[in-house]
Each structure stands twice: as C-alpha cells, then as structure tokens.
C-alpha cells in the first residue's frame, strides 16, 4: 500500500467504520507521519454544565484519545493493533459552546513496543489550547497482548 492510500484507508476506517467516532461526528482534517488533526463540530449534548454552558471535559478526552491513536497509526505507517496504556489530560481553560473543537496529536517517539504521543485541543486559536495531553500506546502485535485496539 502506498503512503497516500494508507492514509486514505485510515481516514475512511476511522470516520466511517468506528461506531463511536461516527456517532460523535468527528472529521479528520490532516493525517501524515508527522501529525494527525481532527475536529468535533459543536452539539448541545457536549455540554458538561448547562448553566454556565461549558463543554464537558470528557468529550475533549474522547477526541484527544481518538486523534492520539490516529497519530500512532499514521506514524507507524501500517495497520497494526494498538492499545492505549495511559492518558493524562490538563484542562487549561473553559471550552465554549457553538464552536468546533480542534485537536492535533503528534506521535513523537516510536519504540518496538511503545508509542509516545502529545496532543492539544483548541477552539479559535491553536496558541490558546483548552486542553493538552500526554499518552502512551502499546503496539500489541509486538507484545502478543490480547487487549488490542485497531482504529
């Protein structure tokens, strides 16, 4: 598979095949070995506080987890089972309604068994992120682990 068709295949599988990604309506805006970027259009059901009208941090975690996994596959350049080991989120500022949420993730280190990812999420200005994250993924086929995850 050429690189371009691999990225197309990942994109399609991600947005059309994964039920939860489809239910949330995430859109992939960029995919390369360097980074993955996607956006989540606003919906009232993303709110975590209906009184103050702030977006729930849990849906930000879902987007970041998804895009981080996508960045790992893109960095690996092939489909292989991966599993999230851990994920840490820092919520830097309130996330506002009526605007999409953008997320970019970069897999900056790949070893035989483990991939390391950093990600951030923003609304208007990438320089003012609403959340940043750090996560690690296991390459399951290399570790002969059953708890595999393929996007």
């Amino acid at each position: 598979m050429t690189h371009a068709s691999f990225y197309d295949a990942v994109r399609t599988r991600f947005t059309e095949v994964v039920p939860h990604v489809r239910e949330c309506g995430m859109i992939v805006d960029h995919l390369s070995a360097e980074y993955a970027q996607a956006r989540l259009p606003y919906r009232p059901e993303w709110l975590g506080d209906s009184e103050r009208r702030l977006i729930h941090t849990g849906i930000i975690t879902t987007v970041i987890d998804t895009v981080s996994g996508l960045a790992v596959l893109a960095a690996l350049g092939q489909f292989e089972p991966i599993a999230t080991l851990d994920l840490r989120m820092d919520y830097l500022r309130p996330t506002l309604p009526d605007k999409p949420l953008h997320c970019r993730a970069e897999c900056y280190r790949v070893t035989r068994h483990i991939c390391f990812v950093r990600a951030c999420a923003w609304q208007d200005d990438e320089k003012e992120p609403v959340a940043v994250s750090q996560s690690t993924f296991m390459r399951s086929s290399h570790s002969r682990q059953r708890s595999a995850r393929t996007i």
């Binding site: 994964v18 939860h20 849990g58 849906i59 975690t61 879902t62 998804t66 999230t84 995850r149 393929t150």
Partner: peptide
C-alpha cells in the same frame, strides 16, 4: 450500546467513552 464501540475487531468500547464515563462518574 453499539455506538460506544471504538474497536470493531475485538469488539471493544471506545477508550474515550470509558474515560468520559469515568469523568462523569467523578463529577
């Protein structure tokens, strides 16, 4: 529910949905 699936091969619930559920539980 089926729409929580993040891995159709295993199948398994999306890790983000599990995390979102846990954040909701804490709140």
């Amino acid at each position: 529910r089926r729409s929580l699936i993040g891995n159709t091969v295993l199948p398994a619930i999306h890790g983000g949905a599990v995390a979102g559920f846990m954040e909701n539980a804490a709140i």
